[in-house]
Nucleic acid binder design. Sequence first.
RNA 1: GGCGACGUACCCAAGUGGUCCAAGGGAGCGGUUUGCAAAACCGUGAUUCACCGGUUCGAAUCCGGUCGUCGCCUCCA
Length: 462
Amino acid sequence: MALRLHNTLTRSKEVFTPIEAGKVRLYTCGPTVYAPAHIGNLRTYMFEDILRRYLEWSGYEVTHVMNITDVDDKTIEKAIAEDRDLLEMTESITQRFERDLATLNILPAHHLPRATDYIDGMIGGIQTLLDRGVAYTAGDGSVFFDISKDAGYGQLVNIDPASLRQGERTSDDDYGKDQARDFALWKGAKPADGPYKWSAPWGEGRPGWHMECSIMSSHFLGQHFDIHCGGVDNIFPHHENELAQSRHMFDTPFVNFWLHSEHLIVDGEKMSKSLGNFYVLQELLDRGLTPEALRYTLLATHYRQQLNFTLDKVRESQKAINRLKELARRLEQVPVGHEGQTILPPDDQWRAAMDSDLNISGGLGAIFGWAKELFAALDREALSAPSTGDALAALRSYDKVLGVIFTSSAHANKERIEELIKQRDKARSDRDWSRADSLREELAAMGVILEDTPEGTLWKRG
RNA sequence: GGCGACGUACCCAAGUGGUCCAAGGGAGCGGUUUGCAAAACCGUGAUUCACCGGUUCGAAUCCGGUCGUCGCCUCCA
């Protein structure tokens, strides 16, 4: 059985074979740091996290690079509007971004290069394209890539290059393109850019937004690497252009697998600021939703399917996670040496599902089906000690990918909650049921659900 | 207009030619358990996979058509 991934380049599932045995070089498109990430952005990073974790779970050594776009129209515009230094602003947003990922238990990339640190490399790349005759300078100091020189142009997005050149939107562009969809490798400096410009042989300005990914990916991963990811909106023009320029800058194939995640929509509609259904992580946490429940919600829908994000779905996710956490707790209590039946973990089912283009629903189905058997055996006190150990180990193993069961996220109000529970336990031992019940209601109002067990009172978030 | 995805029980969702008279999660109902709960367990849920037609011994799964939903094509994950 082998891992198969859907390659946008061929629009089909292909068996994944790394360039270098046992190792995977992975590049994922990171954020443009002009505003905090919204839940839709985070969906894509969650998909990439599952991809990376599953590759690692399968035994690959992964090198993961994510770019930080810290110079483009939006970042410059915002810095100037707020009268802040560009790098100071982008750095603070980048740090918030990293905190958001950590909150959701998304593994940080091994390298997080900032575009502004690689401008010299980008200038060198553009020079190569000029030298090779596939790029040209425009009157204002800009440099454009000539797509008519690229026979493969349009392959990723699946459109005929001829139709692109007949595009009717040519005149929209401020820069002097002489062909419809030629794209900017370098943007000549404009007054609106303020101090944010760099010197190049053909004039002052800044890199076009596709160039950074070619240069930074090749810097860390080589000119030919395994997987490049992003959201579907990146397919065109960003990745198409990145592929075109890389193909001509480098003398090797560029990327073997292009993977793209579908968008997240909210309550059935596209998320947008104008519709007012625009969620940022912190707002969701402020509503009392837990990081684990949000993580589960974002990972439980297959990455090539639109994810309809609703608050109900997050609540369902919380319950699903609670079930697995409860299973772990029960397994930990089985006495050593206990006799009983053997129940094997569903490793084959889990692997078969995940190997099929990361079929997470199938994988979760396997885990929950197995969980049901374990609970039934545990209730009958009929699970053998070896099976218990295997089950716990398997649960920990699956959670290396899922990242929602054995988490120890800091809970707000934890001390207050535990104090109230202590008072209630006292009331219960005094058989003061009305006081015990009112304390339980008070805790319920805080979103805390109690479980009285022979081993004491447990609590969890609802 | 071009490109693409999708339509499976009350909701979410896997399954892509027979082992499916269709996984799993959530909600519901009845029962066990519990001081009461919670959690867990037992039982209960689609004779059916948007609709119509076709291929086949056999289709949720393949082909054609119809209807519907959504996305990309412009900055956007």
